[in-house]
């Protein structure tokens, strides 16, 4: 049973709404009737073990995946059935930080950040250059316009990808595992950046992660996705006092009893 806990800003309008979403890949059911609303102006963290469909949920918002059944709404507009062309105005309002950064290898850092501006805006070259420099400075990567993505470290690539995600002043930024593959110090830099952008740009954010330190640092609202459904939804304190043993096991990071027994038998 979904335990909707107090502490969520239910008075705020819903920016994204999932209604009864089902998604399978072959015989594997990933989302099994998920319904959830993401409120405007809030940073929501979607937690869950690897392979439970967190990224799948995120990709439904930008139309990279379509549900097998159910509806996805952006504000009050249904978007799950839109073509790429019809999704374009929605995508303009959403920034997406990919798990692997997804910087274009053949372009410089400057061209990567300028890409959405050249695709969607009518800004002059000088204005685009100014915006690129400003966004790179916001993520602490000033004067790196001429570098190639291959010359950057993992953390720097994430920061450049973040600069690209916010180039168009989006209403919503989606973070897909923003700290995966980074050491704790660089992870914390990314966490601080998420908080800074939320504060400075007033953007809504959905962060998909299984990094608990990151989740508790940036999340105003926490959702746990497990077994194809949402098993908990609330503030960080609500999750800590949650009654469901699966929630407690996840947030304390304990291995399964069955897994431990199997390990000791080896």
């Amino acid at each position: 049973m979904v335990d909707t806990l107090p502490g969520t800003s239910s008075a705020l309008p819903a920016l994204i709404r999932f209604e009864n979403i089902y998604k399978s890949f072959g015989s594997q059911v990933v989302l099994n009737g998920v319904s959830i609303a993401f409120t405007e102006g809030q940073t929501t963290v979607v937690l869950g073990p690897s392979g439970t469909g967190k990224s799948v949920l995120l990709k439904h918002i930008v139309g990279l995946l379509q549900p097998d059944a159910g509806q996805v709404y952006y504000r009050d507009e249904r978007i799950d059935h839109l073509s790429d062309r019809d999704m374009s105005p929605i995508r303009k309002k959403i920034g997406f930080l990919f798990q692997l950064s997804a910087l274009f290898d053949s372009m410089t850092v400057g061209d990567n950040v300028a890409f959405p501006l050249r695709t969607h805006s009518r800004l002059s070259k000088a204005d685009i250059d100014d915006r690129v420099a400003e966004r790179l400075a916001m993520v602490g990567m000033e004067n790196s316009e001429r570098k190639m993505p291959g010359e950057l470290s993992g953390g720097q690539r994430k920061r450049v990808a973040l600069a690209r995600a916010i180039a168009l002043n989006p209403e919503l930024v989606l973070y897909d595992e923003p700290t995966t593959g980074l050491d704790p110090i660089r992870s914390d830099v990314i966490n601080e950046l998420i908080l800074k952008l939320h504060e400075e740009l007033k953007v809504s954010a959905i962060v998909v992660t299984h990094d608990l330190a990151s989740a508790f640092k940036v999340g105003e609202r926490m959702v746990i996705l497990m077994g194809g459904g949402i098993i908990a939804d609330g503030s960080a304190d609500d999750l800590r006092s949650h009654r469901d043993p699966r929630v407690q096991q996840f947030i304390t990071g304990r291995a399964d009893e069955a897994d431990l027994r199997a390990l000791h038998r080896i």
Binding site: S88, F98, A102, L103, D105, T119
Partner: peptide
């Protein structure tokens, strides 16, 4: 193929480029 595996093709779609 490498662009697909590293999500660069998805990134193009998300940024409104065909």
């Amino acid at each position: 193929g490498t662009m697909r595996v590293t999500e660069q093709i998805d990134a193009l779609r998300v940024m409104g480029a065909d």
